[in-house]
């Protein structure tokens, strides 16, 4: 009997240490999400997820191991349910459970599912039990076929989607326009005389690749507008006040 008690103690210790690791990691992740959401990078979050999932696996491995005594044979017997706040309990649970009253007990010491969930579960189990083997096989086959079709559709249209996604954003930039605008505001080009910026037709839906040098020969000769005086020669400013 004593030997079994020791085993249970060991198992509970192992479970405790695993859950503490898990809890710490989740806490760290939540902390970073709350405080560093501006600088937090996706790869870091994914690292956390990987860590948490690994620790979950560890915990389950401990639970499934053969050496673990049958924990389900053990029961927890609540000896005292009190409506007063319990500082010890509060400390042990990091402030999550301030008091152990009649409302908290069913939630924390529950060994069965919610009655509603159990009822729903039972309906499904009954349905499964009534079905005979042949019908079940047929259903499984049909289900697999639908899944395969869905996979096939996704695979075959993925390329189209990718092309769509790139072609939708591509026309947002006209190559060379940055240079045109900057040479206007920094050097006064296109602003002084009758020279106009190159004005490609609006229907041109495939912009040139970015970064191509703009030779002077590409500028279309602008229509001459004689009523524009060159601003260069003015001696006084028009908006004087």
């Amino acid at each position: 009997m004593e030997k079994e008690d020791k085993q249970v103690d060991q198992a509970v210790d192992a479970l405790l240490s695993r859950t503490t690791d898990l809890k710490n990691n989740i806490q760290q992740l939540i902390l970073r999400l709350e405080n560093e959401y501006e600088t937090l990078q996706w790869p870091a979050v994914l690292d956390y997820f990987a860590l948490i999932s690994g620790q979950m696996n560890n915990l389950l491995k401990v639970l499934r191991s053969d050496k673990l005594p049958k924990l389900r044979n053990r029961i927890i017997l609540p000896l005292l349910v009190s409506p007063d706040p319990d500082p010890d309990l509060q400390r042990v649970t990091d402030g999550r459970v301030p008091l152990f009253n009649h409302q908290a007990v069913p939630d924390y010491l529950r060994t069965l599912c919610d009655p509603e969930i159990e009822a729903a579960d039972q309906v499904i189990l009954n349905k499964a039990a009534q079905m005979n083997g042949d019908a079940a096989q047929k259903l499984i086959a049909a289900h697999n076929r639908i899944c395969q079709n869905a996979c096939e559709i996704i695979r075959s249209t993925r390329e189209d989607w990718d092309v769509d996604a790139t072609s939708r954003v591509a026309p947002s930039i006209m190559s060379g326009d940055t240079i045109v605008l900057l040479s206007a505001i920094c050097g006064g080009r296109y602003l002084r005389g009758p020279e106009r910026a190159p004005n490609p037709s609006l229907g041109n839906s495939c912009p040139k690749p970015m970064g191509g040098p703009m030779g002077p020969g590409k500028m279309p000769t602008a229509t001459v507008r004689t009523n524009i005086k060159s601003a260069r020669g003015m001696s006084s400013h028009p908006y004087m006040r």
């Binding site: 605008l181 602003l191 004005n199 609006l202 524009i228 028009p238 908006y239």
Partner: peptide
């Protein structure tokens, strides 16, 4: 376009 009249504007480019 018309120096002295900032109402007569013409965009430099389509961007």
């Amino acid at each position: 376009c018309q120096s002295g009249n900032p109402e007569t504007l013409e965009p430099v480019s389509q961007s």
